[in-house]
């Protein structure tokens, strides 16, 4: 599988367009929506993961989005967690608004859920031990 995390920005006039349906149906792309802010009168914003068997499915899907006038930004970075540097204090969890970083309530270790991370980077500021950083991950194959 090839995957890509993207952020879409589009104008209210295409909110009526079934773009997600088309990506799935016509381009065989698996979609996982992470954050969505859509309204009929304002600019829409969507952060999602796109997954496909072939890399060109993803490329074709993105070309379709661009043709529809949607701004597509690839989020090719991810938070890198080095457990060996972590002291399990939990400072980062207070700054994480999406719940991507949580403390395990049993053993008080850090749980990192990359799928709900929006790459705001605040956890990097919160970590006093350089256990968190921004890295390029790209594809997971």
């Amino acid at each position: 599988m090839y995957s890509r995390r993207v952020k879409l920005v589009y104008q209210p006039n295409i909110v009526g367009e079934p773009i997600i349906y088309n990506l799935i149906k016509k381009f065989d792309i698996e979609i996982n929506i992470i954050q969505a802010k859509i309204s009929p009168v304002e600019e829409g914003k969507l952060v999602m993961d796109m997954k496909a068997e072939e890399i060109n499915y993803l490329e074709k899907g993105i070309n379709y989005l661009l043709k529809e006038g949607i701004v597509v930004k690839t989020l090719d970075k991810s938070i890198v967690y080095r457990e060996e540097d972590c002291v399990f204090c939990g400072a980062c969890t207070g700054l994480c608004k999406t719940g991507a970083l949580k403390m395990d309530q049993e053993n008080w270790e850090l749980i990192v859920d990359h799928t709900s991370c929006l790459l705001c980077g605040m956890c990097i500021n919160a970590c006093a031990f350089n256990a968190l950083s921004l890295g390029v991950n790209g594809r997971d194959k």
């Binding site: 204090c89 939990g90 400072a91 980062c92 008080w108």
Partner: peptide, 13 residues
């Protein structure tokens, strides 16, 4: 308000 610890309970244990 959501809370977060700064000292490590894991290490203290």
């Amino acid at each position: 308000v959501s809370t977060a610890p700064l000292s490590s309970l894991n290490k203290a244990r």
